[in-house]
Measured scan of single mutants.
Amino acid sequence: WIARINAAVRAYGLNYSTFINGLKKAGIELDRKILADMAVRDPQAFEQVVNKVKEALQV
């Protein structure tokens, strides 16, 4: 799951650890299995999560 998430978030200019930190700051409580599945099956929803994380990180 970690490898999938890392590959997906790198397309948005983040790395895995920064993304996970941003999830916590944004108050998003999705587990890694769901995030990895979302990255593959629903990229639009995953992009929305990434955008919320970037807002929380102020990137």
Rank of each mutant, 00 (worst) to 15 (best):
F46L: 03
V49N: 02
D37Y: 09
A11Y: 06
K54F: 10
E47V: 11
R4A: 14
R10F: 14
A36F: 11
A8T: 03
G22C: 04
R4N: 08
Q44I: 15
K24W: 08
G22W: 03
L57M: 10
N15P: 04
R32Q: 15
A45Y: 12
E55L: 10
A56Q: 10
I20R: 06
V50S: 01
E55H: 06
M38I: 09
N51A: 08
E55R: 08
Y12T: 02
A39E: 02
A45P: 02
L23T: 03
F19C: 01
K24Y: 11
N15L: 04
T18Y: 05
Q44E: 12
N15D: 07
V53Q: 00
L30N: 08
K52L: 07
V9H: 00
G13H: 11
V49K: 02
L30T: 13
V9Y: 00
L35F: 06
I5S: 00
E55G: 12
A11Q: 13
N15E: 04
I20Y: 04
L14E: 02
A36T: 03
V9F: 01
L30M: 15
V49R: 02
L14D: 01
K52Q: 08
V40R: 07
V53A: 13
W1Q: 15
D42H: 13
V59I: 07
L23M: 10
A3P: 04
I2E: 10
L14K: 00
I28D: 02
L35C: 05
R41P: 02
L57W: 06
F46K: 00
A45M: 12
V40Y: 15
A56G: 07
L35G: 01
S17M: 11
P43G: 06
N6V: 02
D37L: 08
L57Y: 07
E29V: 13
K52V: 10
N15W: 05
S17N: 10
E47D: 06
V59K: 13
T18M: 08
M38E: 02
G27M: 10
N15G: 06
T18W: 04
E47T: 07
P43N: 06
F46H: 00
L23W: 03
R32A: 14
S17Q: 10
N6G: 09
K54G: 03
V53E: 00
A8V: 03
V59L: 13
L57P: 02
N6P: 00
A3W: 04
K33F: 09
L35K: 01
L35E: 01
K33G: 09
A45D: 06
R4V: 15
Y16Q: 02
E29C: 14
R32I: 15
K33S: 12
F19E: 00
I2L: 05
N15K: 05
M38N: 03
A8K: 03
I2S: 00
E55Y: 09
I28Y: 10
A7Y: 06
V40S: 13
F19Y: 02
I2T: 01
R4F: 09
G27H: 13
E29L: 13
A11N: 12
V50G: 01
V59R: 11
K52T: 11
V59H: 10
A39C: 07
A36M: 09
L23Y: 06
K52N: 10
R4T: 15
Q48L: 14
I20V: 09
W1T: 15
D31I: 14
A11K: 14
W1I: 15
V50D: 01
V59C: 13
A26P: 01
Q48M: 06
P43Y: 05
G13Q: 05
N15A: 06
K25S: 10
I28S: 05
W1F: 14
D31G: 08
R41M: 14
D37P: 02
R41N: 11
F19P: 00
Q58K: 11
Q48S: 15
A8N: 02
F46Y: 01
I28F: 07
V40T: 14
I5T: 01
R4W: 06
A11M: 13
K24N: 08
E55N: 09
G22L: 03
R10E: 10
K25P: 05
P43V: 11
R32Y: 13
M38F: 05
R32S: 14
L35I: 14
V49I: 11
A39Y: 04
D31E: 09
Q48N: 12
A7G: 04
Q48Y: 06
L35H: 02
I5A: 01
V40D: 13
K25R: 08
L23S: 03
G22V: 02
E29P: 14
A39F: 06
L23F: 04
A56K: 08
D37S: 06
V53Y: 01
E29Q: 09
V59M: 05
K33Q: 09
R10P: 01
V40H: 12
A56T: 09
N51R: 09
G13W: 03
W1M: 15
V9D: 00
N21T: 11
M38S: 03
K52F: 11
K52G: 08
F19A: 01
E47M: 07
T18K: 12
I28G: 05
N15F: 05
E55D: 11
V9M: 03
R32K: 12
A39T: 15
V50T: 04
K52E: 13
A56E: 08
